[in-house]
C-alpha cells in the first residue's frame, strides 16, 4: 500500500486552505493520543479522516473545534497560526462541529436546538425576548433549504431519527455561517439508508462552499464524498491521499489494517470456530 501513499506537503491548486494542521500532537497525561498529524481543509471540498477506534479521530476534531489545545505543531486558520481557547471562539471563527453524540439536546424542540447558543432577540428593555416566530420559521426554512422536510419543528429533537438529528445539526452549522464544518462519525450509528441521507447533506454543505472535515471509520462512506483522505493509526498518520490517487479498494484495504488483515485471515482459517456450521447463516 505504500505505493499509493503520497504525503501532501502543499495544498493543491484550489488556493489557500481554510484550515491547516501541521505536525499536530496531543497527549492526555502520558497517553499520546496524536503525533505529527497534518491535514488541510479547503473551501468546497471534503477532507475525510479515517481510522479505527482509538486512532485519535475524536481527539483531532476536538482540537479543530477548540475543545482541546494541541501540545505540539501548528494550527493554521486562513494561513495564520491560531490558538483557539474555547468552542465559542471556534464558532465565532466559523468552525462548526457536529459531535458524535453531543449534537443535540434530545428533550428540547427542534427549533430551540437549532438556535441554541445563538438565539435571536426582539423587543427592548424588560420586553427583550426570544424572537420565537423568527426562530420557528427560520428553522423550517433552513431545513428546507438543505432538503430536510420536517413538518413540525416543535417536537422534541430526540423523537427524530438519528439521521434526521445529524441533518438538523448540519443545517444549523450551515445556517450560522460556518465556513468549516466538522462531523464526528455522523454515520456511525445509522443504517444504510439514513447514512445515505446524511451523506447527501454533507455534499449539500460542500456545494454551498463549506470546507468539510468528515470523520468516519467507513471507507465506503468516505470514498463517496471525500476529496482527500487522511488515515490515522494509533495516533499517527498512516497515509494521506487525494481522491484521484486512491481507489475504494485500496482505501478499504488500508483502513482494514492492510497486512494485518491478511494475517488475521490466516489465523482464522487455521482455527475455525468449532460450534458454528457454515450452513447456519
Amino acid at each position: 500500500m505504500t505505493d499509493t501513499t503520497t504525503r501532501e506537503t502543499a495544498p493543491p491548486g484550489a488556493g489557500e486552505p481554510l484550515l491547516g494542521l501541521v505536525d499536530v500532537g496531543k497527549s492526555y497525561g502520558n497517553v499520546a493520543a496524536l503525533r505529527n498529524v497534518s491535514l488541510d481543509v479547503h473551501a468546497g471540498s471534503v477532507t475525510c479522516v479515517l481510522g479505527d477506534n482509538g486512532a485519535g479521530k475524536s481527539t483531532l476534531i476536538k482540537i479543530i473545534a477548540g475543545l482541546h489545545r494541541h501540545d505540539t505543531g501548528r494550527y493554521l486558520l486562513d494561513g495564520e497560526e491560531t490558538v483557539l481557547h474555547s468552542p465559542r471562539e471556534a464558532l465565532d471563527r466559523g468552525i462548526a462541529t457536529v459531535y458524535q453524540d453531543l449534537a443535540v439536546v434530545p428533550l428540547m424542540p427542534v427549533w430551540r436546538n437549532f438556535f441554541l447558543g445563538s438565539e435571536p432577540h426582539t423587543g427592548r428593555g424588560p420586553l427583550r425576548r426570544l424572537d420565537v416566530a423568527t426562530m420557528r420559521r427560520t428553522t423550517r426554512e433552513a431545513l428546507a433549504r438543505m432538503g430536510i422536510d420536517l413538518p413540525d419543528v416543535d417536537r422534541p429533537i430526540g423523537t427524530l431519527s438519528g439521521g434526521q438529528r445529524q441533518c438538523v445539526a448540519i443545517a444549523r452549522a450551515v445556517h450560522f455561517g460556518a465556513r468549516i464544518l466538522v462531523l464526528d462519525e455522523p454515520t456511525a450509528a445509522l443504517g444504510v439508508k439514513q447514512s445515505g441521507v446524511v451523506l447527501r447533506y454533507v455534499a449539500a454543505a460542500r456545494d454551498q462552499g463549506l470546507g468539510v472535515v468528515l470523520i468516519t471509520h467507513n471507507p465506503h462512506h468516505a470514498h463517496l464524498v471525500g476529496d482527500r483522505f487522511v488515515l490515522l493509526k494509533r495516533g499517527t498518520m498512516a497515509g494521506s491521499h487525494r481522491k484521484g490517487d486512491i481507489t475504494l479498494d485500496a482505501l478499504t484495504h488500508e483502513m482494514a489494517g492492510g497486512g494485518e488483515l491478511e494475517q488475521l485471515g490466516h489465523e482464522l482459517a487455521r482455527t475455525p470456530a468449532p460450534t458454528r456450521s457454515p450452513a447456519a447463516s
Binding site: 473545534a65 475543545l67 474555547s86 468552542p87 465559542r88 464558532l91 462541529t97 459531535y99 453531543l102 449534537a103 443535540v104 439536546v105 434530545p106 428533550l107 428540547m108 430551540r112 438556535f115 441554541l116 447558543g117 445563538s118 438565539e119 432577540h121 427583550r128 425576548r129 426570544l130 420565537v132
Partner: peptide
Amino acid sequence: RTRAGNWIFAVGGNKDAARAVG
C-alpha cells in the same frame, strides 16, 4: 421567552452539547 431559559433546558438536558454550541 429568554435566552437564559433556552440555556437552562440545555444544560439540564445535555450539558456537553450545550457547551459545544457555546
